[in-house]
Write a protein that binds this DNA or RNA. Sequence first.
DNA 1: ACTTATTGTTGTATATAGTACAACGATTTA
DNA 2: TAAATCGTTGTACTATATACAACAATAAGT
Lengths: 245, 245
Amino acid sequence: MRQIQSLARGLKILDMLANAHDSISITAVATELQIDKGSASLLLQTLSNYGFAEKDMATRQYRLGPAVVRLSRSLLTKMPLRETAKPFLHQLVRETSECAHLGVLAQGKVLYIDQVESPETLRVNAEVGFTAPLHCTALGKVLLAWGAASIPEELSGYTARTIFDPEVLQMDLEKTRRRGYALDDEEFDYGVRCIASPVFDYRGKVVGALGISGPAARVRLDRIGELSDRVVAIAKALSDKMSFK
Amino acid sequence: MRQIQSLARGLKILDMLANAHDSISITAVATELQIDKGSASLLLQTLSNYGFAEKDMATRQYRLGPAVVRLSRSLLTKMPLRETAKPFLHQLVRETSECAHLGVLAQGKVLYIDQVESPETLRVNAEVGFTAPLHCTALGKVLLAWGAASIPEELSGYTARTIFDPEVLQMDLEKTRRRGYALDDEEFDYGVRCIASPVFDYRGKVVGALGISGPAARVRLDRIGELSDRVVAIAKALSDKMSFK
DNA sequence: ACTTATTGTTGTATATAGTACAACGATTTA
DNA sequence: TAAATCGTTGTACTATATACAACAATAAGT
């Protein structure tokens, strides 16, 4: 596959800047990506000129620039799934009193593209733009179970309940497909349970996943049946609406 | 100023994709940016490989990819101004019943980095990531009046009330500085009035603007005094909090 | 359905543009 | 004050991006 090296390097730098906790130095970029210090300097200058990076004049370090926010808005406002799903997310929150999420597949991970906060919890910090692994989240399992993605070779662990065995995961996915919803039972975050169901387009292809998440104390195992009924029903309603579009 | 050409081209393509209403073709990119068709193809392939662009296999056209959403989230969650301002935005909505916005300077424009919707209006579609010109928005005028940016040479018109004369604008900015808040009286959108006030950091430098906006029928001219009092007071309170950080 | 026109992709040769190296000035650390 | 580290900017060099052209695949037109 042919690539443009310098562009690829620039994009890798953007990724670095996104993953860094605070601003990072030229040399940090150069050593991390194994490129020349001078080259890194030029690349970051170019990114700055277009607003994708920003230079902190005090520390002479770089961070992400405001241009990326513009791009993100442009993408999100143009997603038909997001627009259509909005009222369904609200409905889900009303009916379950839990936080509702909408996710799609993006580069082998779940990308949270919308969220409606529960009235109970003040702030659940899984904002729009958050990405999580597929094998240990309800939204991700949905994408796996209905064939939007295939099981990744590396199943990293997050909690004691995280499924790291591919065969066990395969069984879990089959169960998921049979019952129509996926369950994340504290497999990604301690104390958090999530339930999710697939959203299909007019051809019957999975285009996203819709779900709720809440503290394990409230999303008790004996309530899963009742809650999953709501999730499945609303995901189904959304799918129907997506088909008539 | 030295630049990396191919990276610059890639970033320009991202900008094009953001501004386009729907997906665009390789040739459209090539003609717009005056580059070779083959080069454009390679650039877009590279952007795709890193998730910054996405190819619609059916139409063979490209649109923005999900990676930009991740980047945006990374930037927004790391902005101290945004975190600090959140409760003040809510307070502003509570006290005025209008939609509250938080903006910063980005590439010679105002970038809306946060928003709290009014309980009255169902959906004001100025979401996070929206950019607007400085000279005809309340947030923008604040940034101009307190020296975050200088008056652009091109003052494009949006409504009949848009100020396009630099001298008139200069006078408006002086008035703004004197009274402590900026007013956008249907200068950007017909039927919309906005009031905004500056947010300073610990050195007294403007780092952003805080304001409200609502329908002209509700934000009447005889209520400006009362409303601007709230905006000025809360922006002041936010500035104080920013200083103690 | 056939032709015609347009599109996207992939070779290949050239020369441009990105890279490495080094030296400088500016900061920060000791 | 000295030493070390960092970012920037020159300058060769060669690697790489580019233009051109040919091809395949789709779309449009007759």
